[in-house]
Amino acid sequence: MTTKKNKWISVAVTIVFAVITLTALFPIISLVIASLRPASGLMREGLSLLFDPSTLTFSNYFSIFSESGQQYWRWYLNSLLISGMLIVLSLFFSSMVGYALAMYQFKGRNILFVLVLFILMIPFEILMLPLYQLMITINLINSYFAVMLPLIVAPIAVFFFRQYCLGLPKELMESARIDGCTEYGIFFRIMAPLMGPSFAAMAILQGLTSWNNFLWPLLVLRSSDMFTLPIGLSTLMTPYGNNYELLFSGSVLTIIPIIILFLFFQKFFISGLTVGGVKG
C-alpha cells in the first residue's frame, strides 16, 4: 500500500521536476530558436513562439562568416587568448601560494591566510576606480594584461588550493628532501602532479570567470579590436543596431562550447563553481 503510494508520489515529483527543468532550460532553447529566426524584428518585437517552422533559417549564421562577422571572430580570439593565458598564469601563481600556505610552517603564514579571506569579502567594484587610474598611469589601458591583472592571483583560487593541499601527504616532502630534491623540485615535480583535480576545477572557475567577465574589461578595453565577447556583444545590443544577426548567432556560439565542455567535465565544473559562489 505505502510502496504503491510512494510510487505515485515519485511519478508526480518527477513530472514536476521535468517541468521545472524545462522552464530553466527554456531561455537557452529560446536563444537557439531565435538565432534561427529573421533577426531584424527580434530585439524590437521580441521572440514569438507562434511562428511557421518553415521560416526557420540559418541566415544569421551566414552573417557570422561574412565580412561583418570578422570583428566577431576577433572578439572570440581575444576572449580565448585572455582566458587561456589567465588560466595558465593564475593556476601557476595561485597554486604556489595555496601550497605554501598549507604545507609550510613559517612566520606570517596565518596573517597571509587571514588576508586571503579578507580580500574575498571586499567587492572588487570598490577598488575599481583607483585600479583603472593605475592602468592609465602605467599605460596598460586597452591591453590583454590589464584585463587579466586583477584575476591572476585570485584569492578564491588560493583558498581552494590551500584546502586541497592540506590533504596531500607531507611525508612525501621529507623523503624527497632526503633524496636531495630542492623545495621547488618537490612542488613542481612531486606535489603539483598530485593536485590534478584541483587544477582542473580552478581552470574551469578561472576560465569561466574570465570568459564571462564584464565590468572590468568594459573599463579598460577601448578599441573594438581588443574587445572580449561579452563587451563586443553588448555593443550590438543598442536599439539602433543593424547587426542583430550577429548578436543572436554570436550569443549561441558563445555558450554552446561552454555547455559542451560542461557535459564532458561536469565534476570539475561543479567543484570549481561552488568553491565560493563567485560572480561570473
Binding site: 530553466a24 532550460l25 531561455p27 537557452i28 529560446s30 536563444l31 531565435a34 527580434l42 530585439m43 524590437r44 518585437e45 521580441g46 521572440l47 514569438s48 513562439l49 507562434l50 569561466l208 570568459w211 564571462n212 564584464f214 565577447l229 561579452p230 556583444l233 553588448s234 545590443m237 548578436l247 543572436f248 550569443s251 558563445t254 555558450i255 561552454i258 555547455i259 560542461f262 565544473f269 561543479i270 563553481l273 561570473g280
Partner: peptide
C-alpha cells in the same frame, strides 16, 4: 546548472527578447 554557464550579457540578450514589449514576445 546550465544557466550558470551563460554570461550575463547572453542571458540579457535572451531575457530582452523573451520579455519584449510587444504582444508577440513569448
Amino acid at each position: 546548472f546550465v544557466p550558470a554557464l551563460t554570461s550575463v550579457i547572453v542571458a540579457g540578450v535572451i531575457f530582452r527578447m523573451m520579455f519584449g514589449e510587444s504582444e508577440t514576445a513569448v
